[in-house]
Simulated scan of single mutants.
Amino acid sequence: MTEAREVTGMVLLAAPVGDFDKRLVLLTREYGKITVFARGARKPNSAFLAVANPFVFGTFFIYEGRTSYQLKSARIKNYFTELTKKQPGVYYGFYFLELASYYYREYMDATEMLNLLYVTLRALTVGKMDNRLIRCVFELRAVLLNGECPDFFSCQECCNSEQLFWFYPAKSGVVCESCHKKTKGYAIKMDASVLYTVQYIVTSKLQKLYTFTVTEEVLETLCKMMKEYMKGQVDREFKSLEVLRVMEW
């Protein structure tokens, strides 16, 4: 057996394998997204029984087998067990895990995404912020980390920084009132409150990210903007979103 490696990360996915094992997908700071097998994790007396589940965050000790990583032990910081009891909050959580998994591959630096996931799941658990707003914040910061964040600070046509009241998903940014009159394509009208909110989301520090509220009108516009924008960024359907659509119908 090779020497165990220490990685810090979160379980994105846990799937049964064989009679007693589990296949884990971990997002780690050291190696990006990796697959780890937890032998015997489904046995009632297994030391991995609570460890080998989605949302679990901590330090994992793994060793490299002939064809895959194997879990040796773990030191857990947060199981996020409170989140698993929240409906529909837990499915927002699953969506965030799926989106992180979509964006990351092995050997990618996942430090910032792990930090974002952690504070986001904490926000879902606390429950003081509307789940829809948490989703908008997470999506916007996720695309920011992926280098695809829309430009909310200057007009995509004339570079003007005033009267930025129209969001064009296809242009990945905003257009001023003057240019909107001669710009083709689908656009969503924003007011000053919506513009300030998205600018705050993309520039605020992580610890301040989930400490604000907005009106229902602003939230509805944000949800519409992110829904249309994410259509052009993600080329797959997430199972968690399908469940959320049914639950919130």
Rank of each mutant, 00 (worst) to 15 (best):
His180Tyr: 02
Glu30Lys: 04
Glu162Gly: 06
Gln87Arg: 10
Ala74Gly: 05
Lys128Asp: 06
Thr125Val: 15
Leu121Asn: 05
Lys128Pro: 00
Val56Asp: 07
Thr221Pro: 03
Leu145Val: 07
Leu27Cys: 02
Leu71Asp: 01
Leu83Cys: 11
Cys159His: 09
Val11Asn: 08
Phe48Gly: 04
Phe37Thr: 11
Ala38Phe: 04
Tyr102Ile: 06
Asn115Pro: 01
Lys43Arg: 13
Ala187Trp: 02
Lys182Glu: 02
Lys182Gly: 01
Lys239Gly: 04
Asn146Cys: 03
Asp109Leu: 10
Ser193Val: 12
Phe96Gln: 15
Tyr91Arg: 11
Cys149Phe: 02
Leu12Phe: 04
Leu164Tyr: 05
Leu209Gly: 04
Gln87Cys: 07
Gly89Tyr: 10
Lys205Cys: 07
Thr197Trp: 07
Leu83Glu: 15
Ile134Pro: 03
Val56Lys: 10
Trp166Gly: 11
Pro150His: 05
Ser172Trp: 00
Phe48Met: 13
Met1Ile: 09
Gly185Asn: 11
Leu206Ala: 01
Cys158Ile: 00
Arg29Gln: 09
Lys22Tyr: 02
Met113Leu: 12
Pro88Cys: 09
Leu241Tyr: 04
Asp19Arg: 13
Val17Glu: 10
Arg23Gln: 05
Val174Ala: 11
Phe167Asn: 14
Lys189Cys: 06
Glu248Cys: 11
Arg66Ala: 11
Phe94Asn: 06
Leu116Cys: 04
Glu148Gln: 12
Leu244Pro: 00
Glu3Lys: 01
Gly18His: 00
Gln163Leu: 12
Leu164Ile: 03
Phe212Glu: 09
Arg5Glu: 12
Tyr104Glu: 09
Arg66Phe: 03
Met129Tyr: 00
Phe152Ala: 09
Phe80Gln: 15
Asn45Asp: 09
Cys149Glu: 14
Glu220Arg: 08
Lys184Arg: 13
Ala170Leu: 10
Val17Leu: 09
Asn160Ile: 02
Leu24Asp: 09
Arg75Lys: 14
Gln156Gly: 05
Phe57Met: 14
Leu117Thr: 10
Ala38Pro: 04
His180Thr: 12
Tyr196Ser: 15
